[in-house]
Amino acid sequence: MSIGHTLLGLLESGPRHGYDLKRAFDEKFGHDRPLHYGQVYSTMSRLLKNGLVVVDGVETGGGPERKRYAITDDGITDVQRWLGTPEKPEPYLQSTLYTKVVLALLTRRDATEVLDTQRSEHLRSMRILTDRKRKGDLADQLICDHALFHLEADLRWLELTAARLDKLREAVAR
């Protein structure tokens, strides 16, 4: 999952301090793996360097955790590009996909679009596997089937999520 894009997305609703970003991240996406402060600071300094955020204010007391960050137009474009680009279909995608959907809802973008774009990318992979299976021997067929079932599982999750977007939108707004 891209921590940088996720933190950027969280900044879209308004400037935040580093510790506030970490708290929001852990609450929405951290679940079993909260961010380390170190990860937040290294990510934010990279985003600063790349012009995707600016320092909006510094609290007295110093230290990087006192900086307040604001997203730039380039930052917003970067989030948009990330959400609009499908993930390469591979196992263990769910946390990235989940993050994208929630961020799209949080930033009032079209989450259906994220899901549709990803479905299309998955289907592209499934077509290639199906074609290989058609031409292959039994061993090819079994190997392709294994990959196909994994992709299918992702897709079922996508469909179910699409059907629950309204509920998820409410939950995310809370």
């Binding site: 549709d116 479905r119 299309s120 998955h122 289907l123 499934m126 077509r127 596997l129 199906t130 196909l148 992709l151 299918e152 897709l155 079922r156």
Partner: peptide, 12 residues
């Protein structure tokens, strides 16, 4: 999806 994978393209 497994059935749609036999298509050339899809509409939703």
């Amino acid at each position: 999806a497994r059935v749609a994978a036999y298509s050339d393209r899809e509409i939703v």
